[in-house]
């Protein structure tokens, strides 16, 4: 039982919170800007490597580099929107989807040129797990969970209580009516990209600190993040969190029934099942 908790459930929840941070971004873009953002995984990769760059250039500890990376990735996400996606706004959305697939490749290749393709790590310190009753948790795992909790709580409070948070929800809910109410479309779009970029960086950073940094890590995680967003319900932040945790746990537990190389196929199977059985997801999101 202890073994089950510590070898499957704990890693599943940690992976799940990483997916959740990525899936929130995907669900916000899908819900508010109305397209599937296929550069999202690579945006997370960029954030992770920007944090690595900040540790090297500014001499920061990894966790101190995280806010810097979140800010830079937020700017990067907005810059990509301004340079590449904005011209496509008045055209069919699927063109932006195609463009984002190319942006993902571009981001990945920049990381590969700057940092190389060999795996890297934030630090060489060996973190020992501490016992909490029967649970064994490493400090970085606790930090990942705490960070996810803090970011999700902040975001939910922002969306629920602030004027601009409500404007984002209104755009997601009924864009025409939001415009009739005088909501500034460009302002909401800008804000969305900032939030999404910062969360993607946090997601990539946590992925890097709990495993290692590879240039393909974001791309590989993207399928799981998309599955989490659809499972939770497109446009639903709380759904993306639940979906992320479910996908993370399912992947870790899948090794009990299928050979471990197929772990990363779990998300795909869940995605197809949810599209087949309940495309609106657990929390009744949008179906585009």
């Amino acid at each position: 039982m202890m073994e089950f908790l510590n070898f499957y459930v704990v890693p599943g929840i940690v992976t799940g919170s990483i997916y959740a941070l990525g899936a929130i971004g995907i669900t916000l873009i899908f819900g508010i800007l109305r397209f599937g953002h296929f550069a999202h995984g690579d945006l997370a990769t960029s954030g992770a490597y920007l944090a690595l760059g900040a540790t090297a250039l500014l001499g920061l500890t990894p966790w101190a580099a995280l806010p810097v990376a979140m800010l830079l990735t937020a700017l990067l996400a907005y810059g990509i929107h301004r340079l590449f996606y904005r011209h496509l706004e008045s055209r069919p959305k699927i063109l932006t989807v195609i463009a984002s697939l190319g942006i993902g490749m571009m981001l990945r290749s920049v990381v590969q040129v700057v940092w190389g393709v060999d795996p890297l790590a934030y630090g060489s310190g060996i973190a020992r797990a501490q016992a909490f009753g029967p649970l064994m948790l490493r400090p970085r795992e606790i930090a990942t969970l705490a960070l996810t909790l803090a970011l999700v709580a902040t975001l939910l409070a922002f969306l629920r209580y602030s004027k601009w948070g409500k404007a984002m929800r209104a755009m997601s809910d009924n864009p025409d009516l939001a415009r009739l109410c005088g909501v500034d479309n460009d302002g909401v779009t800008r804000l969305t990209w900032f939030i999404v970029g910062a969360l993607a960086a946090a997601s990539g950073f946590c992925l890097g600190i709990n495993t290692e940094l590879t240039t393909m890590m974001g791309w590989s995680a993207m399928l799981s993040m998309f599955a989490a967003a659809v499972l939770g319900g497109v446009g639903r932040v709380e759904g993306a969190v639940v979906g992320g945790l479910v996908i993370g746990l399912a992947e870790e537990l899948s090794v009990l029934v299928v050979p471990s190389p197929y772990k990363s196929a779990t998300a795909f199977v869940i995605l197809l099942a949810i599209l087949l059985l309940r495309p609106q997801g657990i929390f009744k999101g949008k179906v585009l």
Partner: peptide, 12 residues
């Protein structure tokens, strides 16, 4: 559904 879903499924 819209083609976004097909895109992610075909990547999968």
């Amino acid at each position: 559904f819209r083609s976004d879903y097909l895109a992610i499924a075909t990547i999968g």
